[in-house]
Structure formats: C-alpha cells, structure tokens
Design a protein around this nucleic acid. Structure first.
Length: 299
DNA sequence: AGATCTTGCGCCCTCTGCTGGATTTAA
DNA sequence: ATTAAATCCAGCAGAGGGCGCAAGATCT
C-alpha cells in the first residue's frame, strides 16, 4: 500500500512491481534493477570496499553496512528497544527474534521430528542430530564433535594446562564445569525438608553433605553393636555370624551326616576331618615353629 | 536517473547452561 | 564383589552478536 503526493514517485514505485532488470553483471550474469545495485554487486566480486570505518580497519561495500558496523562496534547505539525487558538491539530483525523468547513462538519446524526453533539457525544446527554429522575435530586427539563449543571445552579440559576449576564454597569439592558445580550444590548442599538419618546412630540431618561427613566419623568405630551382649565389630557380616550364637541358628548342614553348624568355616573343617578320605591328619609337629607334617621323613 | 538511506532476509558465529549416560569412587 | 552415589563428559538447545547482500524508499 504505497501512497505518495507526487505522481513521479508513484511511477517510480510502480517500476518495482515489474521484474525489469536491465543491468547485468558480466562476471556472474546476475541481473539488477539499477546501476547502483549492479555496481555494489560487482564490488562484491572485486573486493572493492569504498566505505572505510574511521575507528578500525574494516571496510564495506555500502554506507549502510558501515553504519551498522559502527553501531555494533563503536557507538553501541541500539535503536530497537524491547517493551517487555531491557533488551535493545542494533537491528530490527534481532529485536523480532528476541521477542520470541518472550512469546515462546517457534516458527521454524524440523521436518523430521517435533522440534521447532525460534530461528532458522536452531533448526539447521538441530538437523545434525538427525544426520549424525560431527563437523568439529579436536586437533590433538582427533575426536569429533557436533558443535564447536563442545569441541573447545573438550580441548580445554582434556589437553589444556591451568584449566579453570570451580570451587564449591561449602566444601573442598572442585569441578571442571560450572554446571557440574551447580549439580553438586543441588545434591549435596541443598536444605532437605525431610530428615535424613545417620546409618549408625540416631543423628538427623537436613543437608546431605553434613550427613555424609557425620557418617565418616563412625568409620573406625566398631559400628555394629550386638543387641544381646557387649559384642561389637566393624563389619556387618561379622555381626551376622555373631548373632547366631544368640539365636542358635545353624544354617550349614553336613551332606554326609546331617550335623549342623553355625558357620560355613566350621562345616568345612568337619567335612575334611570326618568325610574326606584323602585327608591326612597332622601327626608330627615342629616344636619351634608349630608347622605340622604327616610323615616323620618330611618332618 | 542516480545517489543515498533504510529494510529485510540470510548465514554463521559465540557464549551459556542443562541433561543423561559413562566412568570413577567410596561404602 | 557388589552397589550406590558422585563426577566426568559429550550432546544439544537457548539466546544473542555481527556481517553479506539486495531490494525498497527517499533525496537531489
């Protein structure tokens, strides 16, 4: 809907609706509407960049490109302001893209799955998850990656020296990645409404790290205490055996005579002594070291 | 008509942070 | 030896910066 007070402008505007392109590039045969556009186009072939930036050594084909560059790099003027937050941009298209992060609109649909992106690049990058393409290679170990950023972090962590570390403010844990420190804080240093009980005593905690530290203080104690007598031991399995002296339970039966034992070891000794025909009893024992022999010659 | 702004689309880049499987460590 | 939890790590998406290029609009 073009409106103008002058008939000449209207005529000129009407020309934009015709597809007349009389000016042709002799290098690539592309056609253009005006000589100026053609000239700019040829400059892209020849590398001629007449518009130099005053503040750095960049140069551009059009004055508009230079103006935009100066906003980005030097004046930092950002005319496009977001009405919902503090964001401002140099270009209208950037504001438009930004607005989608408020609205959640995702106009760019992947044609292979349900993913949709807020801009075209997201979908393009996403397509690598379908193609399996991994364009970025580590120059040291030649491992390949789907994104450059992932490759860079790999090179830093695996092959770099004086790698940055993330120190936990609450304990001496150090992680290589910031997001892993976040996970650590969440799992170990977050207040839990539910009480967490010590495995060995009645102490109660609301922070996992405190619980674990506390449980370590039990480490060299005989943590397993018999309910029926004063016996205590460091290992759970020892207590299991001990408890049978109170219950009288004898889980191990001899297959030959059906005699029962509290401990497997006791059964083994029994079998060897009474039912193993190849077993030779110790007859001659050395008085100095206690070692036993079946024959006098060996002794 | 030509020159010069202004718009608009496109391409590619970086930084950032979450996730879940693999590996290591401790009980 | 087994197992549970912690840490490592690559995959992958969100958000935004910067430039290339040509068409549209306006000025001279």
């Amino acid at each position: 809907t073009f409106t103008s007070s002058r008939i000449s402008s209207l005529n000129r505007h009407m020309k934009t609706h015709t597809n007349e392109k009389p000016y042709t590039c002799h290098l690539c045969l592309k056609a253009f509407r005006t000589v100026t556009i053609l000239r700019n186009h040829i400059n892209t072939h020849t590398g001629t960049r007449p518009y130099k930036c005053d503040d750095c050594d960049m140069a551009f084909v059009t004055s508009g490109e230079r103006a935009r560059h100066r906003r980005y790099k030097h004046t930092h003027e950002k005319p496009f302001k977001c009405s919902m937050c503090a964001y401002a941009s140099v270009e209208a298209s950037k504001l438009k893209r930004h607005i989608r992060s408020h609205t959640g609109e995702r106009p760019f649909q992947c044609h292979l799955c349900s993913y949709a992106g807020k801009d075209a690049y997201k979908v393009k990058r996403h397509m690598r998850t379908h193609s399996g393409e991994r364009p970025y290679e580590c120059h040291v170990c030649h491992a390949r990656f789907t994104q450059r950023g992932t490759m860079k972090i790999h090179v830093l962590q695996k092959h770099g020296e004086n790698v940055p570390k993330y120190q936990c403010p609450h304990c001496d844990t150090v992680t290589a990645r910031k997001s892993d420190l976040r996970v650590h804080l969440l799992k170990l240093h977050t207040y839990e409404a539910a009480e967490m009980k010590c495995r060995y005593c009645s102490a109660v905690f609301h922070e996992r790290y405190a619980l674990i530290q506390h449980q370590k203080t039990h480490k060299n104690e005989k943590r397993f205490k018999c309910e029926h007598c004063s016996y205590a031991c460091k290992q759970k399995r020892h207590m299991a055996v001990h408890v049978r002296t109170h219950t009288g339970e004898k889980p191990f039966a001899c297959l030959s005579c059906n005699r029962r034992f509290q401990q497997k070891q006791l059964l083994n000794v029994h079998v060897k002594k009474y039912h193993d025909t190849t077993f030779v009893p110790t007859v001659y024992r050395c008085p100095r070291c206690g070692k036993g022999y079946s024959r006098l010659v060996s002794y």
